[in-house]
Write a protein that binds this DNA or RNA. Sequence first.
RNA 1: GGGCGGGUAGCUCAGAUGGGAGAGCGCCACGCUUACACCGUGGAUGUCACAGGUUCAAGUCCUGUUCCGCCUACCA
Length: 886
Amino acid sequence: MVRGTLGRAFESHEAETRWYKYWLENGYFHAEDRSEKQPFCIVIPPPNVTGMLHMGHALNNALQDIVIRFRRMQGYNTLWMPGMDHAGIATQNVVEQELAKEGISRNDLGRERFVERVWEWKAKYGGMIINQLKRLGCSCDWSRERFTMDEGLSRAVREVFVRLYNNDLIYQGDYIVNWCPRCHTAISDLEVEYNEENGHLWHIRYPFVDGDGGIVVATTRPETMLGDTAVAVNPDDPRYRDIVGRSVILPLVEREIPIIADSYVTMEFGSGAVKITPGHDPADFAMAGRHNLPIIRIMDGGGAMNENAGLYRGQDRYVCRENIVADLKKYGYLLQVEPYLHNIGQCYRCKTDIEPMVSRQWFVKIAPLAKAAVAAVVKGKTRIVPATWEGTYFDWMNNIRDWCISRQIWWGHRIPVWYCDECGRIIVAAQDPQSCPDCGGTALTQEEDVLDTWFSSALWPFSTLGWPDQTEALKTFYPTSLLVTGFDILFFWVARMMMMGLYVMKDVPFRDVYLHALVRDEQGDKMSKSRGNIIDPIEMIDKYGADAFRFTLAAFTAQGRDVRMSEERIEGYKYFVNKIWNATRFSLINLEDYPEEGVSVSKEEESLPDRWIKARLGRTIDGVAGGIEEYRFNDAAAAVYQFVWHELCDWYLELIKPILYGNGDARSRLAAQHTLLYVLKTVLKLLHPFMPFLTEEIWYTLVPEGGAIMIAAFPTVEDGLRDPEAETNMGILMDTISAIRNIRGEMGLAPSKKLKVLIRTQDESSRSIVKAGKDYIVAMANLEDCAIRGDMEDLKGVATAIVGNLQILVHLEGLVDIGGEKARLEKEIAKINKDLAFVGKKIANRDFLSRAAAAVIQKEEGKYRQLCEKHAALDSALKKLLSLGP
RNA sequence: GGGCGGGUAGCUCAGAUGGGAGAGCGCCACGCUUACACCGUGGAUGUCACAGGUUCAAGUCCUGUUCCGCCUACCA
C-alpha cells in the first residue's frame, strides 16, 4: 500500500462517522478485566437519562477523552467506564408531563404502571446523550455501559443501605426537611438554592394573655403564625427579661403560647422577639427541641394550608399570606410593614419556593463518614486538583449535616424496608423478605419512599465495576485513577463518592480528582435557556467538526478559570485543523517518491533545520505530555499549536522547500523527507488525544499500514531529539532572516524584490554558522545574494540591523531613503537607550552587586555588554549614513 | 455574615519557586511566492485595579482599599 493523497479540505462529518465506527468495530475502546498492563480508569460522571449534551458535558467529556486517549497510547490498560443516571425527580417530571398531555396523572395510573411507563419512556427517548458523546469522539468502553437502575446497581444500592442501617448510620425520624411543594417530595439541603428577593418584614403584635399590652414580633412569613407555638426573646435582653414565662394570645388563632428565652435570638434584629414555628422553620424546629415545644404542621404536601389552619384551610400558602395580612390589619394586630431583602430557598430543579416542613424521612448519619473522607484527602490518598478546592471540601465536610435520602416519588430505588402488617416490626433487607422474623406474618408492606438519586451515584465508582460481586474488573480498576468533573458537584457527588467508597471498599474511589470550571458565554455569563445564550455542542460539531471543537475546549481550560466559549473561537481552531490538513497535503506531495520502507539517515546527513525541528519536537513532546499529566490542558494545547503552526509550518516546511524541490543533492533531499515524515507522524500522535478524527484520517493516508493512530504509542523524548546546539545555531539564522525581513517591511521594499545583503562579523564561529546557513537565509529572506565577510569597511546606501555579533547590511540600491533609514535606526537606538539606562542603573547599584545572586549579576552584566555593543554598532551605522550620504 | 477566585495589550486570557511582560483574536501596512487567503511577511498597542510595605530587585511576596464573579450561612 502506498501513501494516499488528501482532498482539498477535511470533510469532518464524513470522517467522524467512519472512524468512530472503525474504532468500535476493532474494539479499541475495550478494556481488559485482567491485563499485564498497568490499569488506568476513569468513571464518567453519569449524565441524566433525560439529558441532552450541553457545553458543560462537552467540556467535561472532552477532557476525559483527552486523558483517556493519552493514557491508552501510553500503554495503559485503559478503562473509561460509561453510563447514565436515572435522575429520579427529573425523569419522573418528564413522564408526568407526558401523562398530563394525555390528561392523566401518575395517581390515575398507580405506582406499578407508572414505573413501567418510565421504563418505556427510557427505552424510547432516554439516553440521547450517549449518542451525542459518541459524536464528540468519546472512547468509552460501551460494552460496559451501566445505568443506575440496572439490576446490578440496584443490588449495590440495597446492599449499602442495609449495611449502613445495621451500622446505625441510617435512621428514620420526624425532622424538618426542605420540601418542594411542586415536586411533592423532600429534597436534601444541597438541592436548595437561595436567591435574593424583595419581601417584607411584617411587625405583628401578640397581646398578653393576662394584662394589657403585648409583644411585637417581626416576620417575613406571616402565614406561618398559624403554626406558632411560642415567642422567643434573648435571655439577656433587658426589655423582655420580665416577661419571659408569660403567655400571649396568638392573633386570629386565639391559641395561648408561651414567651421563652433562647440565646439564638438576636436582640438587635427587628423587635428582638421572634415568633416560633417549629413545623415550618429549621431554626424554630431546633428551638422546639431545646424547649420541648409542640410542633404544628399547617400545610399539606402541595403547599396549601391544612386542617390545622382553621379558617384558612385549603388556601395556597401565598394566598393565605395575603388573607392573614389583611385580617391582622383589620383587627389591629399589624403595626408596621417594611420592605425587606432576603434569601428565599428554591428547588434547584423547578425553582418553586421551598417549604421547610416537618415530616418522617430517612437520613444518613454522615459525620463518621465525612471524617474518613476528610482524612483521606489530608493524607493525600486522594488529590484534588486544583488544590484550592481542598479547602472548600474540608469546610463543607467538617460542617456537614445529616443527609436526607428519602424522596416521595416513584421513580428510583425503593427503600429496602418493610413493615410487618401484623406486629409493626421494621424489616431492613437486601432481599425481599417473605415473612416477618418476629411474628412470622406474611403481610408485609414495603416503604413507599425511594432513595435520593445521589445515593446510587455515590456508589458509582465501584457499583459499575460489579460490586457487590468481587469481579476481576473491580480488583483491577478500583480505586480508579481519576475523576473529572465540574466543581459544582463537588459536594453532591465527589464528596459522597469519597464517603461511600471509603465505607464500602475501605479505600478511596479515585487517586486524583480534577475539577474543571464552568462553561460560560463570551460575556462571562452562565449559559441558560432563559438568557438565550446557549451554544449547542452538536451544532458546533456539525459546523466546525468535533476536532476543532474539542481543541477549543482544551485550549481554554486553564485551571481555576471559567471557560468562555464563543463560536468565533471554535472557528479559529477550525483554521488550525485546516492548517494541519494542508501541511500534510504539502508533505504528501513531497513524499511521493520517498520509499515506503524509509531510508536510514546518519546524523551527519541531517541538515541544521532537520536537527532543529527535531529538537523543537522534543520540547513539544514534553510540553504536551507534561500538560496532560498535570491537567494543564491549555498548556498542552498551546504547546502543540505553537509547534505545528509557528515552527513546523512557518519555518521548517519553508526551510526545506528548496531542498525538496531538488536544489540540493539526492541524499539531503532524502534526509529532509525522512525528517519531515518522522516529525509529522510524531506530531499527529501528540495531537491525537485532542483531535482524534483528523489525526486518524491523516494517519491512515500518511502511514497506510501503520494501524490506527489511536493505539499507536505516545511519543517520548528520545535522546536523539535533544539538540541545544541546533536550537542555538538555527536561532541565529532565524533572527538574521527576521532582521532582513524587518528592514524590508520597514523600508517599504517590495516582497518580490530580491535584495543584496552583506553580513559581517569578526567572530569566527558566528561567521561559520552563517556561512553554513547562507542558502537558508537567501531563500527565506528572498535575497539575490548574501555575502559574509570578516572585514568591517564602511559602506554607503545600506540599511543596518544588529543580531548578536552580526552586522546585517541590506543594500538599498537606487531606492535609497536616507530619511527612512535614519528614522528606523533612531527608533532602534532609542529603544536600546531605554534598556541601557535600566540595566546600567542596576549594575551600577552597590547593593545589587553585593546582594544579588552571582548568576543574576553575570546575566545583567552580559545583557549590558550586548546592549552596548548593539548600541555602538547602530550608532556608527547612523553616523555613516549621515556622513556618507546616498 | 464567612470563604474562595479574579481585576495584565481593543477583546479573551497565559504568566511554578521574585530579576522591568507573552499568546490567540482584532487592528495597520504590504503580498494571490506551485500546502493553506481557513494564507504569508512586517508593524503598533500595556502607570500588570488602587495605596502602602518587604527586598538590591515585585505582575509575581505581605497589608489595606476598591470593583466583579462564585461558593457557603437558621438573624426571624
